[in-house]
Design a protein around this nucleic acid. Structure first.
Lengths: 225, 225
DNA sequence: CTGGGCAAGTTACCTGGAGTAGGTTACTGA
DNA sequence: TCAGTAACCTACTCCAGGTAACTTGCCCAG
């Protein structure tokens, strides 16, 4: 930990605003993931960027702002990935399954930094908490939409409640998965879909004839991988 | 907000260690709840206690230590309340219902400070995060135990996974409830039990003859209160 | 080619709050 | 009544977030 940064040799070049911003976010995400929010200093991020501290403030206003920007970017990426994954599905079951797999796979591959992002809605200030909660709301909108097609007979309050349940369960599950290397993304997705399918069953419209892509286990305990 | 503290008139009396400690925890819980962890200064807590800052460090070692102590105490209380509530139950269904109602009722009555406790696993340092996660583990042990009696046929990995799912869902639900004044603790408990009962159904042992205390709605959308 | 304009970047500072060293006060019991 | 101890305070240090005001390099109009 004493040498210069290998990816950014002493050559501090001037960069365009956009490029610098991306670089800063990359570095910040990594350092936050390594040390946690509190234990990370702005000086360290600046140094690893090969830039001085006021630059960070120029771009993100505050340490909180930087965190929020990181979270927003990652959540947007996650949202995008899950949305694309679900796009190809036909049956509600399939939507759920694909969405879950995409979700857990994404988090698995970003585990270090994402573990922080999930657990770090660290409410520095109320505004920060709000900003982070807002990104969560996008995700919840997506889920609520899926639920609505999934269970059209369910009343609005139930949809809303179940959306929260599913989000909370997913986040916790993701966190748990990062501490359990023997649990794959598919395993996690299977636990979730099995549980959710049943939970939603009272509102389910009987699915069309056997779909072309029967997801995983119907409900029996999945074989331990 | 400019006068002296009404509960503690200017009379700074010497107090026993135990009493002072309790008082400090009470004050800290309140202030953390009001301002959030970051925005709270040790000086303010000390002042509201009618005591000087080094006293806080004498008792809790650090700001993190104080947070952990608050969280531990509250979680222990929560655990106790839910445990006691479930003790009187007979059927698994009833256990689940009573536990959930106790959980959401407790959080509802402590909403301000608890919203923070839930969302503030703020991972100041890794050790702090660990300490807080440990209190969560107690809760998960309780849930896992319930699940095991609830669904004796379920394999261990499923129990573990579902425990995480239920914990995540409960916490999220609790947070959601604090932002929705029209949702009562019973409503929240009903959403959760309805969802969980179904989710667990594949592993359920058929319940004994109609229990004496059939909880709430079987599964139909509960009447909006 | 050249110098004005502007965005990228810097140094050197302020500030507030976490944490501490060392001394002081009041209750307790012999 | 006076030692001993446990509660308590004053008065600091130090570090990290944040900022004011200056400098440097790039681009292009003339």
């Amino acid at each position: 930990m004493s040498g210069a940064t290998p990816p950014h040799p002493p050559r501090r070049k001037r960069m365009s605003r956009a490029a610098r911003e991306r670089q800063m976010l990359d570095v910040a995400e990594q350092v936050f993931g390594e040390r946690g929010y509190q234990a990370t200093s702005m000086d360290e991020i600046a140094e690893r960027c090969g830039v001085s501290k006021p630059m960070l403030y120029e771009y993100f206003g505050s340490k909180d702002g930087l965190l929020v920007a990181c979270v927003s970017r990652s959540k947007a990426e996650l949202l995008d990935v899950t949305q694309k994954a679900m796009a190809g599905a036909t049956t509600p079951e399939d939507i759920l399954w694909r969405g879950m797999v995409a979700y857990f796979t994404f988090i698995d591959s970003h585990s270090k930094s994402f573990a922080m992002l999930l657990r770090e809605p660290t409410a520095e200030t109320p505004e920060t908490a709000e900003a982070i909660e807002a990104t969560r709301r996008q995700q919840s909108t997506l889920i609520a939409g899926v639920l609505a097609t999934f269970a059209p007979t369910a009343p609005a309050d139930v949809i809303e409640a179940y959306t929260q349940i599913i989000m909370g369960a997913s986040e916790r599950m993701a966190l748990w998965q990062t501490s359990r290397p023997d649990v794959s993304a598919e395993d996690a997705a299977r636990y979730m879909t099995d549980f959710c399918r049943q939970g939603l069953s009272p509102y389910l419209t009987p699915p069309p004839p056997p779909s072309s892509a029967p997801p995983p286990s119907a409900q029996a305990p999945p074989a331990r991988r």
